[in-house]
Amino acid sequence: MTAQPIESFQADPMPRTRRAELDEQQINDLTLLGPALLAGPANVIMQLTLPAVGYGVYESKVESGNLFKHPVKRTRTTLTYLAVAAMGDAELRRKYRHAVNKSHAHVRSSSSSPVKYNAFDAKLQLWVAACLYRGWEDMIRLYGDPSVITEEAYRQGAIMGTTLQMPPEMWPATRADFEVYWNETVASMELDDVIRSYLKSLVRLKFAAKPVSMIMGPWSELLTVGYLPPEFRDKLGVTQTPAQKRIFDAHNAVLRVGVRLMPAPMRKFPFNLLLADVRWRMRTGRPLV
């Protein structure tokens, strides 16, 4: 199959930090958190293009987290993790990590799996965090102010991995190091027919009720293909037609104006609502995931 991420990448490590200190860290720029939701499916495709991550999701025995069986619950859990990682406090991150760990304990390859994987593998969590950070950069370039893409903002991106098990010293030290890691990892990845077919079904919303997938599937495909970087389109075997590009560009032009006019709470929706929900679940003793 393919090489795992960071096998050949080497960078000066970031200083070792205690887990409690990591949980205290905050992300400063959350202005495009809500609009970034539109690019969520494309980001998931990027994450699952790494075979060990793709098969970890495809073969997962955690039924409650199966997107095709429980689409609403799985979507809520994923988005809530992002809300907790980006906006949560130390206690919330600690408790949500503990809840996620219980599910992740069951996500490991079997003797028949085409690739080896383990949800606790920090290298895989690094890749997922890297995709989330790269997605943030892409959204800033599309709809925001590129001057906010700084080394400080980049370092804060590590929180998407350190909220789980990724140690901070695994995060490439600088944005230049990140580019080396990213390019090497993307170049090493190859999709097989099983995961390629699975990812295409996600793009077309095959996990949703049939009326929803029939009506919204084409729009989901248009946006997902638009947000996907070209190298991921090539691996997935999809192309952006001229008509799709015109519609996607028009959509971006409208959204760019809308983001500037949008009040701050709306820019964070639905993540601010999900954060309130998980805090309510903590208070009332309900499951967090």
Rank of each mutant, 00 (worst) to 15 (best):
Glu24Ser: 06
Gln10Pro: 06
Leu33Gly: 04
Gln26Trp: 06
Arg19Glu: 14
Asp29Leu: 06
Arg19Asp: 11
Thr31Tyr: 10
Phe9Tyr: 10
Met14Val: 12
Ser8Asn: 14
Glu24Phe: 09
Pro35Ala: 05
Leu38His: 09
Asp29Ile: 00
Gln25Lys: 07
Pro15Tyr: 02
Met14Trp: 14
Arg16Cys: 08
Pro35Ile: 00
Glu24Cys: 07
Leu33Met: 07
Leu38Arg: 04
Met14Asp: 12
Thr31Leu: 08
Pro13Glu: 04
Arg19Phe: 13
Leu33Gln: 02
Asp29Pro: 07
Ala39Met: 02
Ala11Cys: 15
Thr17Cys: 04
Asn28Trp: 15
Leu30Ala: 06
Leu32Met: 05
Pro15Arg: 01
Gly34Arg: 00
Pro35Asp: 08
Pro13Thr: 00
Glu24Ala: 10
Glu7Ala: 13
Ile27Phe: 10
Asp29Lys: 00
Ile6Ala: 09
Ala39Trp: 03
Arg19Lys: 06
Ala36His: 01
Gln10Ala: 14
Leu37His: 11
Pro35Gly: 10
Arg16His: 07
Leu33Cys: 10
Gln26Thr: 15
Thr17Arg: 08
Glu24Pro: 02
Leu22Ser: 13
Ser8Phe: 12
Ala39Thr: 02
Leu30Met: 05
Gln26Pro: 00
Glu21Ile: 07
Gly34Tyr: 02
Gln25Val: 03
Ala20Leu: 07
Pro13Arg: 06
Ala39Glu: 00
Pro15Lys: 02
Ala36Thr: 12
Arg18Asp: 15
Pro13Ser: 01
Ala39Asn: 01
Phe9Trp: 08
Glu21Val: 10
Leu33Pro: 04
Ile27Asp: 07
Leu32Ile: 08
Ile27His: 00
Leu33Tyr: 04
Ala36Phe: 11
Glu21Leu: 11
Arg16Glu: 14
Gln10His: 15
Arg16Ser: 12
Pro15Val: 12
Met14Ile: 09
Ala39Phe: 02
Asp23Glu: 09
Gln25Leu: 10
Leu30Glu: 03
Leu30Ser: 02
Glu7Phe: 11
Thr17Ser: 13
Gln26Leu: 07
Ile27Cys: 08
Phe9Arg: 03
Thr31Lys: 09
Leu38Cys: 02
Ala39Asp: 02
Gln26His: 04
Phe9Gln: 06
Gln10Ser: 15
Arg16Leu: 09
Arg19Gln: 13
Asp12Arg: 13
Asp29Met: 03
